[in-house]
Amino acid sequence: METLERVIGTQRVFAELAPEHLAVLTGCARNHRFTAGQYLCREGLPANEFFIIRQGRAALEIAPPARHAVVLETLGPGDVAGASWLIPPYRWSADIRAVETTLALGIDAACLRSKCETDHDFGYAMMKCFLPMLVQSLNAARLQVLDVYAGPYY
């Protein structure tokens, strides 16, 4: 587990995490390897585990019927894949597909949520890890909605 803990500690999202909290987090984590075309998660299914990409690239997609899937965002090393595990109903709101061979850390969502509940200091540390990522993601989505390059209007 020492190796895994060190790997987790080098992730951007956990850069500020205290050693004792890192150890707690590591208890919920494991390694994954996805080959190109494999899905990390599927819209509508339970969000039991979320991912931090270590290597490779994954695409966050929504697939309308009778059309190519729309890629909303691509995720690369250091990015957190998925936020649906944070709030009920704990189900994915999009697909995430490995575009190429992708190594990821998987964090067991139920495990992490329960550790946050039992140790609020740990929970607060986790909030500080995930909240900036969520706000950045929200800001990026807003900018994307503007479609700034569509017309000479911005």
Binding site: V71, L72, G76, P77, G78
Partner: peptide, 21 residues
């Protein structure tokens, strides 16, 4: 790209998202 379908193999997302990379 701000928008692309699965035929595009590069990055998708607004340009500030590239900064951490």
């Amino acid at each position: 790209m701000d928008r692309a379908d699965a035929m595009w193999h590069g990055h998708v997302g607004v340009v500030p998202l590239l900064l951490p990379r």
